[in-house]
Amino acid sequence: MIQRLPQSALDPAGPAAERIAALWDFAFWTAAVVYVVVIAALLYAAFHRKRPAAVPVVDRDPRTERRLLVAVSGATAATVVILLVFFVVDLGVTGAVANPAAMHEHSTVSRARHEAPAGALRVKVTGYQWWWKIEYLDSVPSRRVTTANELVVPVGRPVAIDFESGDVIHSFWVPALHGKRDLVPGRTTRLTIEAARPGVYRGECAEFCGHQHAKMALHVVAQPADEFAVWYEAQLAPASVPADSLRRAGMHVFLGKPCAMCHNIAGLPASGQVAPDLTHLASRRTIAAGILPNTKGHLAGWILDPQRIKPGAKMPPNGLSPDELEAILAFLGGLR
């Protein structure tokens, strides 16, 4: 358990995940003790007397039976007490992690409704088969940022997420930060996460959502507040027609092929809404919903035949000549 794993709930990096990991420690040790005691009793019961009897003993000694009754009642009472303690401890943690305001004070007060804490960054995440659309909400429409599969957040600041689904049920889960929350068509669900230290935290869709449920990952990138601010401003900028000729050629390939029907690139005549926004593709670490590193080679493989990498994915294979490919890769590589 000491080993650091990228997607482990036991390696928490946020207050909610920390509380839950502590709850697990408690639950694990309680269960372990209960288990050892019960199994020890069982083994003693089975082996403490060695003479099997042939005839059944129907008329029991009432004194033994009474002692048994006391023992069973005692054990039951102990069970009830343990369950009660567990319930109270759980209520504390459940209330706290559901209510980010309380989490900071380590208070056990729980409010029934989820309210975004003051000063929280507000984000909307929409699940699609099999990728995540991420929108940073801002009261000023021009200051909204849309991206995909990579949620960049400032360290130490609560991020209040609204979840929606564009098709089937998905579930947002980044174990290092918090438990999961389902994305249910027709409703908006909420969760507030927070990263306590900088880092990249991997998550995966947890609710089975069809063919590529297994390859619907995402990353939360936690950055110090100032870095985050820089990133955010960069994301606000639309793309423009590239100056470089190869890239410009690539842009024309992109706009000439069906790509633009599905994908959006702000600033260019590509405004498809059924696929990840590519305006700042090159700034992302991964492609194809957190599955492949965002390198030229992987990008090429993906564009030519997404079906080989994610069979069933909602992006068709594209017949591109080597020149076209080269150009389009250069163009996409420039989308910083």
Binding site: L23, W24, V38, I39, A46, R181, A206
Partner: peptide, 29 residues
């Protein structure tokens, strides 16, 4: 005997996942 040794482990994890907070981590895993 196998029933006791095995089932009780499952029962105890059942109690653990009855916690909403803990289940939020391990649900669907």
């Amino acid at each position: 005997g196998g029933f006791f040794v095995t089932f009780i482990i499952g029962g105890l994890t059942g109690v653990q996942i009855a916690s909403m907070a803990f289940d939020a981590q391990v649900h669907d895993t």
